[in-house]
Write a protein that binds this DNA or RNA. Structure first.
Lengths: 273, 273
DNA sequence: GTCGTTTTGGAATTTTTATTCCATTCCTCG
DNA sequence: CGAGGAATGGAATAAAAATTCCAAAACGAC
């Protein structure tokens, strides 16, 4: 067990976080899980039992106890005392806070945030409600059977495509991001046993449509993540996933697209085992 | 004993206070002491034991228990739950939810989507609730005054960085994305009149930290978009924006980060006119 | 592979905390 | 001023939580 190298416990929240940041690295798996969960949700400590917190972190209670020791406390209760003393319920609930923010004059950053958060939530709700489950299942099937998943998404869709590439990598599914760097199109990287996942929102990029067309011509399955049923990309695809993104003013967020992308990858990862 | 004239317990803080005000008058001495103390210090309920609270009110614990009953709760724990949940929402723990998910049709894509949508909504709510407006205003100020905004975010943060680049371009603010292509670091593109916006989540990329350090050393303002107060990036920055991303299982979405990014850019765009 | 060490999960134990119960006190009203 | 009922305090009990401990698993060095 990593020996507590300092014997005194942190006596302020700041000290606590400093110490936490200092030790997190170099901690074994379970203890690191504790450290990371605590870092992210330290607000819960004041009002949670060991069991609650441990469940949140995904570790057994005894691991959390060890963690408290390493932080320099004598036990969980000791650590909790620090947070209970500093506890100020301060923040009002979400609805109230949102209203406060919106009431500012239109231009303030806080008011903007409120609007975008609201738009994001609306998008997510609509996504859950309107998504065609058959299409999703079909998409998962097609991508699950492919050797390599090719990804393309440019301009506004590029963040989604790069996120997909990241998560596919995490779940160890071979994926290739066609990013257009150097105007190299890597068209010939598409093999007959692969599949293409294309993302495009209006105005649809030529390059994305071209690659989708190419894949289709060669008989590869194409999955589309797009914004409208009538999108030119939809016509080229075997499974079409629609992202109902709400917008605020001229700006559209990507919350729904990102969330759908994550779902898709995790489901494909699960299918492949 | 005053008979509880309503059998259901208050289910919101507002109901609680209404009820408290309604019954306080006409309560015998000790119970009134309880009522008055609770009215004054209701914020302590979430983090106190019966004994603590009773001591504060100057009554024996049993009196406080009676008080809880009169308020319509089954006991102190029941009353406490109301206060704990009001301030720390989202207590349904992940362990349970993961299990439900597995029990239910082995994690069908549809069920997964529901979970990720939920995590995304939670993230957005927490973002609205917890974001430090001062930090946001400061960030907008710093970036608004810069000639060119440099952006860096790698791995999981890369989609956010590329999204920022896209939206900055839309609002016609000169921005440069440091994407690490070809391992060219473009460090010398940072001019004294520029600013850096760095995005990093655990585990923090060396390259991102290095560039932030570099910018700081040269006296450029650094704005951080990160996940924890103790993040190494936070220490290098003049304004720190925290993104409280909820995760589901091992997976974390980017809804909150994307939304905050959009807000930031639009606000900066507005400042520059 | 095998040995020694570190880490882990869970059951057993202890401590703390909540809750009940009842004998006593304190009112109030006749 | 005394009887009856409400209110009270504290001791006893039950429940929940924290903490310890140890056998088993995982890991790392050889």
């Amino acid at each position: 067990m990593p020996v507590p190298d300092v014997l005194s416990a942190p006596s302020t929240l700041e000290e606590f976080h400093d110490r936490l940041a200092a030790i997190t690295e170099g901690l074994p798996k379970r203890l690191r899980q504790c450290a990371e969960f605590v870092a992210a949700r330290s607000d819960r400590i004041a009002v949670s039992t060991v069991a609650d917190l441990a469940a949140g972190a995904g570790v057994p209670p005894s691991a959390l106890m060890r963690f408290c020791r390493i932080m320099g406390f004598t036990g969980y209760s000791d650590m909790q005392r620090l947070f209970r003393e500093a506890y100020v319920p301060g923040l009002p609930d979400y609805a109230t806070r949102l209203k406060t923010l919106k009431d500012r004059e239109g231009g303030s950053p806080g008011a903007l945030l409120a609007e975008f958060v609201d738009a994001g939530r609306t998008s997510l709700e609509r996504l859950a409600k309107t998504l065609d489950e058959d299409a999703l299942n079909r998409a998962v099937g097609l991508l699950g059977r492919a050797d390599t998943v090719h990804l393309i998404g440019l301009r506004r869709a590029f963040p989604v495509a790069s996120y997909l590439a990241y998560v596919f990598d995490k779940v160890q599914v071979p994926a290739m991001l066609h990013d257009g760097v150097g105007l190299l199109d890597h068209r010939f990287a598409l093999r007959a046993t692969d599949a293409l996942l294309a993302i495009a929102f209006a105005p649809y990029s030529e390059e994305t449509l071209a690659l989708a067309q190419d894949a289709r011509t060669r008989g590869l399955p194409v999955v589309a993540l797009t914004d409208r049923p009538g999108s030119p990309l939809a016509r080229l695809s075997d499974a079409v996933l629609l992202v109902p993104e709400a917008d605020f003013g001229a700006f559209r967020s990507l919350s729904a697209a990102i969330t759908l992308a994550l779902t898709l990858v995790v489901a494909v990862g699960a299918v492949r085992g």
